[in-house]
Amino acid sequence: MRHDTALGFTELKGPLARTVRFVVYTALVLVFAGPLLALLVSAFSPVHDPTSLTLLPSRLTLDNFRAAIRRDVLTYLLNSFIVVGGGLLLQVLVSVSAAYALARKQFPGARLVFLLILSTMMLPEEILAIPLSLVLADVPVVHVNLVGSLVGMIVPVGAWAFSILVMSEFMREIPMELEEAARLDGAGDLRIFWSVVLPLCRPALGVIGIFGFTMIWDQYMLPLLVAQDAAQFTLPLALRSLRSDEQVGVGVLLAASLLALLPSVLAFLAFQRQFMRGLTSGAVKG
């Protein structure tokens, strides 16, 4: 019997077929996981030459992390956690609220609003840099200067078109009969949103949670516009500063890079079940 595999191979019995599959799968693992393993091993190893990274450490040490701590990497890491925590919370609140209005309510100009939201995904960060810096320096209506504060890095990421798109498309698939039944029981819009619609959107929340976390965590342009001194740097911005410092060794950069990588991996592992459920739910509904 022949079974088609995901890589397009035909699964045949026999030692030759098993050997070929083992070689191919091993090569794929080395290609995709090799750089990550080299980063992990080299961060705990004495490294003097950036071209001498290895998967087999000769001696394990924490000197790279001690040197990174002396370079205030923990401060940059804390700033990143504050920005990603506040930004992700604000982004989820804005996304679910906007998606509920767009997906479950009918009002004049809804298509235009949705089109304007999608149009923001077509604008690169470089085009928005100057207007954004001017707005943050003097926020309209309240006239507050957010430049030089972590709040200035949190507010702009509070609304993301991708998260609104994912949530609105997911909410459209929820049967209206559930909402109508809740209204017959005397529930209002807020109660329906909180007790009926939102619990059914947990898979979508996992999807926007992972993508939102990664998007905010990897922000470089926004902290570059807002931060006015090194104490306000986030970790991605600090990596640039450390790289340009000739007194910083390669080991310190590797340790800081590992600290910058781990939160994204842990976030994916934490929301993995909801993320996969969100993808499979979208595939079934589509």
Score class of each variant (00 low, 15 high):
residue 96 V to D: 06
residue 30 L to F: 14
residue 195 S to L: 10
residue 162 F to V: 07
residue 145 N to A: 10
residue 89 L to G: 05
residue 271 F to I: 14
residue 66 R to L: 13
residue 145 N to G: 02
residue 42 S to N: 04
residue 151 V to F: 04
residue 194 W to P: 00
residue 216 I to C: 11
residue 153 M to I: 08
residue 95 S to L: 12
residue 91 Q to R: 08
residue 152 G to H: 07
residue 235 L to Q: 08
residue 46 P to C: 05
residue 31 V to Y: 09
residue 227 A to D: 04
residue 216 I to G: 07
residue 145 N to D: 13
residue 175 P to T: 01
residue 32 F to D: 09
residue 224 L to K: 09
residue 156 P to K: 00
residue 60 L to E: 08
residue 15 P to G: 08
residue 231 A to G: 07
residue 54 T to K: 01
residue 259 L to S: 15
residue 160 W to Y: 12
residue 44 F to S: 08
residue 108 P to G: 02
residue 177 E to I: 02
residue 215 M to C: 12
residue 270 A to G: 02
residue 214 T to M: 03
residue 201 C to N: 02
residue 33 A to Y: 13
residue 255 A to H: 13
residue 82 I to E: 14
residue 91 Q to P: 05
residue 282 G to T: 15
residue 277 R to M: 11
residue 11 E to M: 12
residue 146 L to F: 10
residue 269 L to G: 01
residue 37 L to H: 04
residue 180 E to P: 01
residue 87 G to D: 14
residue 126 E to V: 07
residue 253 L to R: 05
residue 221 M to L: 14
residue 82 I to D: 04
residue 107 F to M: 10
residue 57 P to I: 11
residue 229 D to P: 14
residue 77 L to P: 06
residue 201 C to D: 00
residue 242 L to E: 00
residue 68 A to G: 01
residue 95 S to D: 14
residue 142 V to K: 03
residue 170 F to P: 12
residue 274 Q to E: 04
residue 16 L to V: 13
residue 87 G to A: 04
residue 108 P to T: 00
residue 105 K to V: 08
residue 140 P to Q: 08
residue 166 V to W: 03
residue 56 L to V: 13
residue 44 F to T: 10
residue 244 S to P: 00
residue 77 L to R: 03
residue 163 S to G: 08
residue 91 Q to E: 10
residue 262 L to S: 04
residue 240 R to A: 03
residue 102 L to N: 06
residue 152 G to L: 02
residue 74 L to E: 12
residue 171 M to C: 10
residue 31 V to L: 13
residue 189 D to C: 01
residue 186 G to N: 09
residue 149 S to A: 14
residue 98 A to S: 13
residue 175 P to K: 02
residue 36 L to D: 08
residue 14 G to E: 03
residue 193 F to N: 08
